[in-house]
């Protein structure tokens, strides 16, 4: 029963944390731009307002996929707090991402079509890095279970997996939709492809996507925190520091092209991961 309670609490608490993080994001961004910025709770206002808007639709399937996006993201968070299999979590995250992409593809709209294709390229960029992160964890721990990472007495991963950590920071930029990788859609009101993959989602469904993104923030920061899971507060501080770092990068970087993103994440992220794993394989002498 205990597990159920942990899962339920996580499902309730995660979006609240995520919402506040989104609020902090907007505040810090505003300050970095010399503005005052909206109140911290602004994302919640936006969320409830969107919930109250009337529904307009361009197809029925787009909403089905949005529910898939939300439910699979929640499942990922549950996997994280229940300390289940990291590799499977990453595959589930893949389903969530694909579900969103399919939502974008589900209406015959040039903008969401474009956004969906770009989102696919983003998946192509970050998915290998995340999978290699799981393999790196396995190389270090001999297990894919998150419970092995956080169990008392387990050594922190960061000292031996720091190249992978840097690669995961790149993933974080993509996942949080921050410049230079806010390609498929961004959190800023105006961008050159209208709103990319989000263009055709409005009202309550936009709210669901917002909710999913809050879960996603918590999830990816949780993954970052895993790099120093003992004691966990160090990991949380590292994750928050990474979050602030992302905000700064967001404000000083310009958006790059899709091709550049794939090349860059593979050239830097994949190579770092590969070197890291090769090193671990050599010193550990195979599985």
């Amino acid at each position: 029963m205990n597990q159920w309670w942990i899962a339920i609490i996580a499902i309730i608490v995660a979006p609240i944390i995520g919402g506040f993080l989104a609020g902090i994001d907007r505040k810090i961004t505003a300050r970095l731009q010399g503005r005052y910025g909206p109140p911290i709770v602004q994302p919640f206002y936006d969320f409830f307002k969107l919930l109250g808007k009337s529904r307009i639709a361009t197809s029925r399937m787009q909403f089905v996929w949005i529910y898939g996006y939300l439910v699979f993201m929640i499942t990922c968070v549950v996997f994280l707090v229940l300390k289940l299999d990291l590799l499977l979590l990453i595959f589930l995250l893949g389903f969530a991402g694909i579900s969103f992409v399919l939502g974008g593809f589900s209406s015959k709209s040039p903008y969401s079509h474009f956004g969906a294709n770009r989102e696919l390229m983003q998946i192509l960029s970050y998915e290998p890095v995340l999978l290699l992160m799981a393999l790196g964890v396995y190389a270090q721990n001999g297990s894919f279970m998150i419970s092995e990472i956080v169990k008392p007495g387990a050594a922190p991963l960061l000292p031996s997996l720091w190249p992978i950590f840097i690669a995961v920071l790149l993933v974080l930029t993509i996942k949080l939709r921050k410049s230079p990788f806010d390609l498929s859609t961004s959190h800023h009101g105006h961008q050159e492809l209208v709103k990319g993959i989000m263009t055709e989602f409005s009202g309550p469904y936009y709210a669901l996507i917002t909710l999913t993104e809050w879960y996603e923030i918590v999830l990816v920061l949780g993954l970052v925190a895993l790099f120093w899971a003992n004691p966990l507060w160090v990991g949380i501080i590292i994750a928050l520091a990474a979050f602030v770092l992302e905000l700064i990068i967001d404000n000083i970087a310009a958006r790059m092209t899709v091709g550049w993103m794939v090349k860059f994440t593979w050239a830097v992220g994949l190579v770092l991961c590969v070197l890291n794993i090769a090193y671990l394989y050599l010193i550990k002498g195979g599985a």
């Binding site: 503005r35 005052y36 910025g37 909206p38 109140p39 105006h190 209208v194 989000m198 936009y206």
Partner: peptide, 18 residues
Amino acid sequence: PLYDVERFGIVNMGNPKH
């Protein structure tokens, strides 16, 4: 920054659906 309407939650969207 001088007027910063985002203080009031006003965001300029490029899309009627939002």
